[in-house]
Design a protein around this nucleic acid. Structure first.
Lengths: 201, 201
DNA sequence: TCCCGTTTGGACAGACTGTCCGAACTGGAC
DNA sequence: GTCCAGTTCGGACAGTCTGTCCAAACGGGA
């Protein structure tokens, strides 16, 4: 698939130094090549393309852009494209990761000039998120007339879905709190969560 | 200080099995005794009473109740009392930790009866909290007319204080994002954070 | 009673957090 | 220009938290 290399190189050069281009092999699920490496991945590494399942679900084979968060705190905008053989079979996946943080920082910088000393209402973050958990669980219980300890697997799955949707699991130590609120074990909670994210990642 | 043991035992018995009573020795900063152990601490263990500094700052020697969160997700209401020698010298600290989760669960259970199928508007959690970080930083920059990379130590300290107040650091992976937004290193961010929490814990 | 799907605690690897350190850097004072 | 105190930085580290896996226990039908 060295066929695609020039394309990758061109894209990488165009967007350097803020974009990384990765070419994945569909067959072996491995990284074929990386241009402008940022994420630390190298050729030969497993692709970890959970997305491959979904790749057939887009009409034009292009996915994203969607947001990623790297370990060191950069925000990436990421797009993928399925590359096909002449016979139409998917053979490779091209991913471009663009680091948004420099742009954002430039934006805040410019904003400093543009805006004339704005007031700062800055609504606070949800402080007592454990209450939130309790309330979401409570609401479900109420609607279904079943006390927490008698919820079925499906019930809990639904509640976990709601909590996930509400972004609860982005909070530190949330799983312990949720598991306890749901009267279940850490193990089971993770199982539910995995099941959930399998169906809608 | 076995003088206080009966008191501890009585309190523990009264509130069992949802309360833990810990008696600390001020002199050695160690745990003298534990009744109804819940937190896994045992006599002889270091008290880790950072609170000792503040103990003199309350008129009656009673602190709390304030909220704690245990590793396994229980919410505790916690109160402390400074016990004094006949000569008025602080000699021990009595801590009572009451597990609130059973009560809360009972409350949600009862709510299921009391409330007639409420609607569920349930405002969502802050989804894109990284934007929030950018905005808070941006607002500060704007107000002080200094671009991010030229903020002084004091500036950053102030921004971190705001972010902390906004609960940002309760979110997973927040430090990396903040460090990057503040154009500083992880190390320095933690230093600022430590300095901050030292002054107002 | 047996069976099958579910739940659980425990073990585990890996990620994340927070601390510490020596080295490098910075901006004044001299 | 040199020196110094204060600050920042990257790397190393221990400890915690996350998420996965497993074998054993459980539970409710057939």
């Amino acid at each position: 698939m060295r066929l695609w290399s020039p394309v990758c190189e061109a894209v990488a050069a165009l967007l350097a130094p803020y974009a990384e281009v990765i070419l994945h092999d569909v067959r072996s699920d491995r990284v074929l090549g990386v241009w402008n490496p940022m994420s630390g991945r190298a050729p030969g590494a497993p692709s970890l393309l959970g997305e491959l399942d979904r790749l057939d679900s887009s009409p034009n084979g292009v996915y994203g852009p969607y947001e990623k968060l790297t370990a060191d705190g950069r925000r990436l905008s990421s797009v993928s494209a399925v590359l096909r053989d002449p016979d139409g079979e998917p053979s490779a996946v091209l991913c471009v990761n663009l680091d948004r943080t420099p742009l954002e920082q430039a934006a805040t910088l410019l904003a400093a000039f543009a805006a004339p000393s704005a007031p700062r209402p800055e609504a606070l973050f949800e402080q007592d998120w454990t209450d939130r958990v309790q309330r979401i669980v409570g609401a479900y219980v109420r609607e279904h007339g079943r006390p927490v300890e008698r919820l079925t697997r499906e019930d809990r799955l639904a509640v976990v879905a709601e909590l996930e949707l509400a972004g609860v699991f982005a909070v530190r130590r949330a799983t312990a709190v949720v598991a306890r609120a749901l009267r279940t074990s850490r193990s089971t909670l993770y199982a539910l969560l995995a099941e959930l994210r399998r169906s809608r990642p």
